[in-house]
Design a protein around this nucleic acid. Structure first.
Lengths: 220, 220
DNA sequence: TAAATTAGTTAGGCTAATCTAACAATATAT
DNA sequence: ATATATTGTTAGATTAGCCTAACTAATTTA
């Protein structure tokens, strides 16, 4: 049985390692920053997780999840995303509110609960942010994600996920009436500041920043 | 903000003090036994809760919840019973399975979550065991509960709640097809062992033990 | 490549919640 | 009313998760 805290470390490690496929390991400082603790604390916990066979790591070396560690991490991710979906779809939570409550709900221990919840939600494949939900075997759909900033002018694309899940960004999206599935047309890229003129769901064109275009995943 | 553990102490105190109206206080040993800790641990926590103004108590004296302590306890009870209702009604959990998962869910911190959940469940007044669910103001319906063992022979009554919530009892009830609302007719009380012959929802009469008749609340 | 910077570890301490063992107060029974 | 039993408290130790300060290893830069 994993503690609340151990689960958070595994989830962080999973998140950080899946961020770029090329670098499937994380650093102590990076982890600590992500979890809001000091590096010394992370070192302690890593030793403990290593003892338990959940991560592989040597002093000053790379930190990697073991198969079991990854499996556990995915189980938590699954719960997190199912709960987000529940809050969004059934309880009318907004896009930017679901995360912090799901952070708590993901630690509830009950295999029956998560499976029944999944059934109740009709086996969703994606959470409200467009991220894939692992099934009970830990498998999840692989989606080729492209940043909005990488789409060539003139092309049309569909929003499939957010890269940035901060409240500020999610609230801005809501204001722009952009959600998962919204169709965007790239009108032009302004060379001066790399900002982009886009058309949202066929309405009038408007300008968004480079930072914005770098925070949204779309598919062509 | 209360810790997970503090919440459990408040809930225990509320439970023990509402058990008999005549004795609205609990003892250290009683509390400790209920929570599965040693009396010394309970003493420590009581001092802490007193510091925080949640219980009133002096060394070797009676333990009572303050108004604020009671309020907090009721809020937890409300969450517990709403989650039980959710699990039972929406996720097809059985009567005897809801409690242990609700024990975890009741500690989730989000005012919005509990209110939205209540709305989603259509403002239920009673949980699956027949216990009243406090509303957002902490009020709950007062129900006059009579034990099955106190009903006179020949009379008819309706099951309104269970006194014993153990798995063994709940599973037995399920087997007998007794649930909240089931109508029971008392045929006779056997003097020898105080067992009772009852008719369940109009079907054939059968004998149940004194212990059984002492574990079920009915209304006339 | 040597110095400076960054990343990571160790040692020692703190707090919350638990324990055991010993003790003190209260209640009960002859 | 005193002895016994029950109930409750204190003191001191333990563990998990966190901290700071001081250190060491690895990496980057001049």
């Amino acid at each position: 049985m994993l503690s609340y805290t151990e689960e958070n470390y595994l989830k962080a490690l999973l998140k950080l390692s899946s961020q770029n496929q090329e670098k499937p390991e994380a650093g102590t400082n990076e982890m600590a920053a992500y979890l809001g603790v000091k590096p010394a604390t992370a070192t302690d916990m890593l030793k403990k997780l290593k003892e338990k066979g959940l991560v592989s790591y040597e002093k000053y070396g790379k930190i990697l999840l073991t198969a079991i560690g990854r499996q556990n991490g995915i189980a938590i991710l699954r719960k997190h995303r199912l709960w987000e979906t529940f809050l969004y779809e059934k309880l009318d939570f907004s896009w930017d509110e679901v995360h912090e409550v799901a952070e708590q709900l993901e630690h509830i221990q009950s295999a029956k609960l998560v499976n029944k919840l999944e059934e109740f939600l009709d086996f969703p494949e994606f959470d409200p942010h467009g991220d894939p939900i692992p099934n009970s075997k830990g498998e999840m759909p692989v989606v080729i994600k492209t940043l909005l900033s990488e789409i060539e002018p003139g092309a049309t694309c569909r929003v499939i996920a957010v890269k940035d899940t901060s409240k500020a960004f999610l609230q801005y999206l809501e204001k722009l009436q952009i959600t998962i599935g919204t169709v965007l047309k790239i009108i032009e890229v302004i060379n001066f500041d790399r900002s982009v003129n886009i058309q949202i769901a066929g309405s009038e064109a408007r300008n968004v920043s480079m930072k914005f275009a770098d925070s949204l995943f779309v598919c062509r």
